[in-house]
Amino acid sequence: MKDISHLLRVAGIFVLVVAGFLVVRHFMVPKSFGEVGHYRADAVDEIRALKQHYSGDAACPACHKGQSQEKAQGGHRGVRCESCHGALQEHVEQPKSVKPGKPKESEMRSFCGRCHEKSLSKPPKFPQQNLKEHNPGIACDQCHPAHKPQ
């Protein structure tokens, strides 16, 4: 017995170190880590639960039927409502208290020009106008109704 006591001491230390490692590991590795892969599975649900700001077009026609139908017939049929009116998830949830914005009359030329100002960087087929020459000072929607532009 005397001959192996030094071995037992080393074995005891080894067991303690492994036990200590397991205890520390238990507290350091977060819950759900490694359930699916080398990551915290709960993180997927956390990211999934983040707040949405843009609603999408599906909600609009329920209240704004006329504008939706009008838009579906014109050149802006592929443009989503929120592209011009801004993020409207809150408006969908509280239609009375949160009102959507729309471009001001005075800012209309620069607002529409963001897409339609003539530039050789744009695809040639896309409708473009040189805003300095094209009826300066007149708001775009005087001739081109925004929901159904000609």
Partner: peptide, 11 residues
């Protein structure tokens, strides 16, 4: 839903 960038791309 679609990503916000896809949702808002006019072209």
């Amino acid at each position: 839903k679609r990503p916000a960038c896809v949702e808002n791309c006019p072209t």
